[in-house]
Design a protein around this nucleic acid. Structure first.
Length: 490
RNA sequence: CGGGGUAUAGCGUAGUCCGGUUAGCGCGCCUGGUUUGGGACCAGGAGGUCGCAGGUUCGAAUCCUGCUACCCCGACCA
């Protein structure tokens, strides 16, 4: 399982599939670029889901579910939106198969749909078509709805986790009476994402807005959180869009104000996807495998008994079962690996590969001494801890690991983020020491395009926080209001 | 869709140029034994339409033709 991991660690996507997903679906192009998420990987996604869902509910949202198939006619109402997605839609044209002679299954030509159905690439259109019926008065607003779902985007090129044809995500779609409120919602949700990324994934992010060319199709403003992976490439990890009245106008969603005036509603949408799992893997993993933040690890602690026979195992179990109960009462997730089919050394390596934050080894020797060997995944350090102190020690160590991997990631980002004032220096750094670059830009699409073509670096975002010093564009010398964030991106 | 590459057991591969025993090796898997505090060892064993279709030949993983899929680089993108 771990064969070749060290050598391949520079190319994360090479070993995800050995670790958490199985991607070998396709002899058939229809599932090209999809992925099977294995149980352990899915457990990580469930932890992420649970926390995000909690945060959405704490900010007043409720979950709903809308159909997978969207009639083509819905989809073509918002012009820039359809332009953005038209090239990557899977389309359902028939509803029946037919078994011909020789067991040859074909699509029944008589079963053609009158109107084709689009497999949702995102749900704005079907949701706004529905909101039209939900909204009449200012009393119906705001509508604060989220959906957990799968979507399909027929990308020309796929990358495991980062850009699969089908992916799992959450999409929030809100409707508001005023522009101000919709913008506040948009900003609130990007802050929720940033908090989740930093406090739970232990992944530092930079919040900002997208340039015109990178903005979501149909949005007036796109907020993003941008993270830096260990190889110096940036990953867009979550977005929140202020949609203005674009979808309200396209789907004719109006409400009556207190003054009995008819107005279009204002909208936001926001989402994060299983791409976050890719981000998590690429932020922290090392040559030994995954490193998971304790807050998202499916299991935070694993106990490995070291035994030669059933009597020894029974003696070990008797001593550590009360400890496990005590840990569980504190809300710590614990696994006790009693398998006799693998040797301890194999298990050590296996749990390191899977990123369990803490491993405790207990053998006859330790029962006598009353001290257990505790190993932490982030630093691979081991220490002996007295039985009486173990529960408190683990509780503190989990917090310590969570902080430590965040700080490590942040430090790494800071040492690979540079302020650059000349375009020559920019080109040199992008080539030699990839990472974030803060530089001045004249705000035009032409300059952005030029930089992209010459260096492959793109504007990841226009940061919201930090120094807002004015300056001159590093390419054209024209005035710039603030530095923007550049990087090569996934 | 353009450029490059690859396809041999569950995974990784040798063999292909120059056709010739029963297609070899490592990991993994199964059985037995010895082991068990950092990925155990010994012995035995199972597992292959050599991507698919056609052709050349006494004989094809190997040569020819066509097709398909995957990977990498671009364009596209959560």
């Amino acid at each position: 399982m771990s064969k070749g991991l060290t050598k391949r660690s520079e190319n994360y996507s090479q070993w995800y599939n050995e670790l958490v997903v199985k991607a070998d679906l396709a002899e058939n192009s229809a599932v090209r670029g999809s992925m099977v998420i294995k149980p352990y990987g899915y457990a990580i996604w469930e932890r992420m889901q649970a926390q995000l869902d909690k945060m959405f509910k704490e900010t007043g949202h409720m979950n709903a579910y809308f159909p997978l198939f969207i009639p083509k006619s819905f989809f073509s109402k918002e012009a820039s939106h359809v332009d953005g997605f038209a090239k990557e839609c899977a389309v359902v044209t028939h509803y029946r198969l037919k078994n011909t002679e020789g067991n040859n299954i074909i699509v029944d030509p008589d079963a053609k749909l009158e109107e084709e159905l689009i497999v949702r690439p995102t749900s704005e259109t079907i949701i706004w078509n529905t909101y039209k019926n939900w909204i009449q008065s200012y009393r119906d607003l705001p509508i604060l709805v989220n959906q957990w779902a799968n979507v399909v985007r027929w990308e020309m090129r796929t990358r495991l986790f980062l850009r699969t044809a089908e992916f799992l995500w959450q999409e929030g779609h809100t409707a508001h009476a005023t522009k101000k409120e919709a913008i506040e919602e948009t900003k609130q949700m990007i802050n929720v994402y940033a908090e989740f990324a930093e406090k739970w994934m232990a992944m530092p992010v930079i919040i900002g807005t997208k340039s015109d060319s990178e903005r979501f199709a149909g949005a007036e403003e796109t907020y993003t959180i941008e993270a830096l992976m260990q190889d110096g490439k940036a990953l867009q990890s979550g977005t929140s869009h202020f949609l203005g009245q674009n979808f309200a106008k396209a789907f004719d969603v109006k409400y009556l104000t207190k003054e009995n005036k008819e107005e279009f509603v204002w909208a936001s949408s926001w989402g994060v996807s299983t791409r976050l799992m890719g981000a998590l893997i690429m932020s922290h993993s090392d040559d030994q495998g995954l490193v998971l933040p304790p807050k998202l690890a499916p299991f935070q602690v694993v106990f490995i008994p070291i035994f030669k026979n059933d009597e020894q195992l029974a003696a070990i179990s008797e001593r550590i079962n009360p400890l496990i109960s005590e840990l569980r009462e504190k809300g710590i997730t614990v696994q006790f690996d009693k398998r006799d089919s693998q040797r301890p050394g194999f298990k050590f390596a296996e749990y390191e590969l899977k990123g369990y934050p803490i491993r405790v080894a207990v053998g006859p020797r330790d029962l006598e001494s009353g001290q257990y060997e505790v190993a932490r995944r982030d630093t691979l350090e081991k220490s002996f801890v007295a039985e009486a102190e173990l529960v408190d020690y683990i509780e503190n160590l989990l917090k310590d690991i969570q902080n430590n991997i965040f700080n490590k990631a942040k430090e790494r980002r800071e040492t690979t983020t540079q302020m650059v004032d000349s375009y020559d220096e920019f080109k040199k750094i992008i080539e030699e020491k990839p990472g974030f670059i803060l530089a001045h830009w004249d705000g035009t699409e032409e300059t952005e395009e030029l930089i992209k073509n010459e260096t492959k670096a793109t504007i990841r975002c226009i940061p919201i926080e930090g120094n807002k010093e004015e300056g001159k564009c590093m390419v054209t010398g024209k005035p710039s209001k603030q530095r923007v964030l550049f990087a090569k991106a996934y």
